[in-house]
Design a protein around this nucleic acid. Structure first.
Lengths: 332, 332
DNA sequence: ATGAAAGCGCTAACAT
DNA sequence: ATGTTAGCGCTTTCAT
């Protein structure tokens, strides 16, 4: 499959390569007539410009690398949509790399981006430690979203506030034994736990944290252990919607009704929170907006490489839906 | 951000570029001592090989393009996982491109892959018409999965069989007014409807098809219209799990219990089918396996470019879960 | 408006 | 085992 080169088109159209190059980039300096002829022959030959060669020759300002942590969480699909939109759609070439739920692939994914010499990386949901990220930020400008990374432009929702809102909501409802089903401890994701602890502390309640992972079935197992005890919690605040689903699974397994016997609050407002007939009370991190703002941050950084790093934070919104109510009574 | 080149490493290590190149590709012909020295200085300089330059210089056998239709449907995340695994993980460079739920971006996405001169494209869930795909198959080898494309290697589940199984399941339960909530008509996705019609025909039942889209809320609206009528269907077979969710939404909206008043069957066995407390009866297309088989097909094609096109089909599995039962009585 | 020529950072064939 | 050299298909001055 020998592909058609710019040279082929140039020869067929009877012009130089330079003109074909200009034409295909919509650059000025090509007469209308010539431009048309070039496109016509290009189409006849089914010519597709070679991006590889193009980016080698032109040193940069052409591609943006996008890292998405986990395709199974459609939070990242929302962020991606916002990003695409904010970038003005067609414009730039996006080079994608995807990690995995446990963060094991983050390094490899970022490496491919660097090796593809993207001009900038927009990363959503990085799980790597701040320290491991330093190598990248020193090489390629990084815009991190949904996670704060030192040395990068950051776009995120205020997790401290979100966790406080969620916890205070449960406290306000009258709950006292409120478990926080925590995400794995890693740099940049500590604030949800902090918000929970602050709210509990201020209300004079004892904290009760259970470590868990990002996987639904592990959340189910982790919370299940305490749900069957007589002194079980009356409410669970899960670090994200997916693990909240695991909590709901466990509740069913032990015959507890939600929200009558157990209130459950999630986090993210991903599509997982909207089940037919059972809508999860959750905290909206405004994922799509995060994507859009990341796009703007990226564009700004590209335009002004030496500007000071910026940090854009937006406020989360508590969405009270069907899985939270007064303890015992079941009243909302 | 001037990046470190192979030349820099060569100079610093006191060798030629060729040796550095060989070393980084783990090619034979470099003494152990030299290789070590090269890597050491490479690490010191924080050198990352330039993939762009590498693939320009070496014509091919290095990268595989991956097209995913829609990040919001985690069916594609499953396929992607299987693909990665089947490809042997680290080995090849994957270039990703993502479409959109309505297929509008399919062309642009495929174009970027071609322009990145990938050696082969693995596409999951293409929505483009057969005709529009011809341009691509003539340029780059294509392995299509979850969709049959003429001129490509195909890996898919037998949709005719899956739809028959689903429909026969409902008929066997005693349903007569069974609606098929259809996907948008497009090449390569006609067999689910066919399977439904065959099964209905053989049972002497009248078909009742309602056109819909891939979006949950549209499915809700489309089916909602008939759910409030007195002569409403007793069962709905939705073309995929996401639209089945829309059907469940509509059922709730009109106060119908599932499965007592309405049986619902989905398709795909995506994570959307597993709600806490309400597990969708669905047809498992074995998405992950689809991905793995696509990987093998891709590797085979790359190894034997002139072999005849292959078509690999696997059998779907009906998963009877909680949303289907006898009509009216509610018995399973 | 158009063309000629020098790279971009690698790989690959050929020398040594 | 190691070095030299010629491209890969473009973009980008610089001429004309």
């Amino acid at each position: 499959m020998k592909s058609v080169t710019m040279e082929d088109v140039a020869r067929a159209a009877g012009v130089s390569r330079a003109l074909v190059s200009l034409a295909y980039r919509n650059a000025p300096g090509v007469s209308v007539k010539t431009r048309e002829r070039i496109f016509r022959t290009g189409r006849e030959l089914n010519y597709q410009p070679n991006r590889i060669a193009a980016s080698l020759a032109s040193k940069s300002q052409t591609s943006i690398g996008v890292f998405l942590s986990d395709l199974h969480n459609d939070l990242f699909a929302d962020i991606f949509d916002g990003l695409r939109q904010g970038l003005g759609d067609e414009s730039r070439h996006l080079v994608l790399a995807v990690g995995s739920i446990d963060g094991q692939r983050d390094n490899a994914a970022l490496d491919t981006l660097v090796q593809s010499r993207v001009d900038l990386i927009v990363a959503a949901g990085l799980l790597l430690a701040d320290h491991d990220l330093a190598t990248y930020t020193s090489t390629t400008p990084l815009v991190s979203t949904a996670r704060v990374v030192p040395g990068a432009d950051n776009v995120f929702t205020n997790n401290l506030s979100g966790a406080r809102q969620a916890t205070e909501h449960l406290i306000g409802l009258g709950h006292q034994r409120i478990v926080f089903l925590a995400n794995p401890r890693s740099d940049g994701y500590l604030e949800r736990g902090m918000g929970y602890r602050q709210a509990m502390g201020e209300a004079g309640l004892e904290t009760w944290e259970i470590a868990s992972s990002y996987a639904r079935h592990e959340a189910e197992a982790d919370i299940g252990a305490v749900l069957r005890s007589s002194h079980r919690p009356t409410a669970v605040f899960a670090h994200n919607d997916r693990s909240a689903l695991g909590v709901l699974d466990a509740a069913r397994h032990y015959g507890l009704s939600v929200p009558e016997d157990l209130s459950v609050v999630g986090y993210d407002n991903s599509s997982a929170s909207r089940l037919p007939g059972l809508e999860l009370t959750t905290v909206d991190i405004h994922a799509r907006q995060l994507g859009e703002l990341s796009a703007h941050a990226a564009l700004t950084r590209l335009a002004e490489p030496t500007d000071a790093l910026q940090s854009i934070s937006i406020d989360p919104t508590l969405l009270v839906r069907g899985t939270s109510s007064h303890p015992a009574t079941g009243r909302k």
